[in-house]
Design a protein around this nucleic acid. Sequence first.
DNA 1: TCGTGCATGTAACTTGTTACATGATTAT
DNA 2: ATAATCATGTAACAAGTTACATGCACGA
Lengths: 178, 178
Amino acid sequence: MALEHAILVSLAERSASGYDLARRFDASIGHFWKASHQQIYKVLGRMEGDGWVTSEVVPQDGRPDKKVYVITDVGREELARFTTTSTPVEPLRSAFAVKLRALPFGDADAIRQDVRVRRSAHEQQLAYYAESAARFYPDPDHLADDELGGWLVLRGGILAEEAGIAWCDEILQRLAER
Amino acid sequence: MALEHAILVSLAERSASGYDLARRFDASIGHFWKASHQQIYKVLGRMEGDGWVTSEVVPQDGRPDKKVYVITDVGREELARFTTTSTPVEPLRSAFAVKLRALPFGDADAIRQDVRVRRSAHEQQLAYYAESAARFYPDPDHLADDELGGWLVLRGGILAEEAGIAWCDEILQRLAER
DNA sequence: TCGTGCATGTAACTTGTTACATGATTAT
DNA sequence: ATAATCATGTAACAAGTTACATGCACGA
């Protein structure tokens, strides 16, 4: 139920085609909400039916036409309403934790290797977030109103990656003792 | 694709009925993998078809019959194989982050309130994990082989909750400045 | 008698993934 | 030639949620 709202946020920031949105969902927004272009087109159709967005076909030269979606007043109201609903803490669903519990029934070396891979993935993501923070928010103590949300989301990502790395380190230490 | 494996882990630890599993998925395993009883029954059926588990109807008195599921050798092999596959870091999908990005288009007071609720949920969960750790692993420096996985998963939960609390605190501080 | 626990399921629906399809332009 | 980018979709499937259904036992 929240892909709609992620799209509304994105369109409220700037109107876009389904294709544009798909690229945004590969980058900025995609850090906390993934969506494939297929899913985006599907949901956009429903949102247009609900009157949350309108679309206009824009011809281009040397490129296929694009359908640019614009948020409507109804869409803005829906987005405002969404901010007043409570968002339950999303339950974590971790295949990695399942694997840890499977330790006595499986291959400890393979798991150790997987933890290392996982740790470096966290490191990479952290580096990416740090770079984004430095580039887009060079002065985090003086943020404009429309920058605060993005900054806070980035901070959340950074804290999560740091926690992930700390977890991997604990696991590796414990597994090394055996 | 991993509910199967979560069930295999649980059955490898101890045979159980669908109902028993559903309760485990409300507690211990449920901390990192939620599943409804409907979903569990559905998947158990498939797993039996695949030969990963077998079942036996056990009559009880004063209670309905139960169908006890036991992991097979094929199931144990599958579980071991699972530990050798790589588990990609699960992308985070956070409606809460969407809401933060919606800050300029919504109700800051309502969001502030939601953060407070979220923070206390993290606190509660952390307290619960801490209590579980103290009760089930009173001596974490000397863990048996079959305890290590459970301990590490608990540690992951604790680190995640602590990071969640730290995030909420940062958000509240930033929102208070406005 | 009314709710809770025990125990197992089916059916309908929503959400998301994977595979497939089309077709022009531009760069290697 | 061939791959990548732009641009929009359909179809089939997998996974998960919500609602519904049944029925006994036990305690308040």
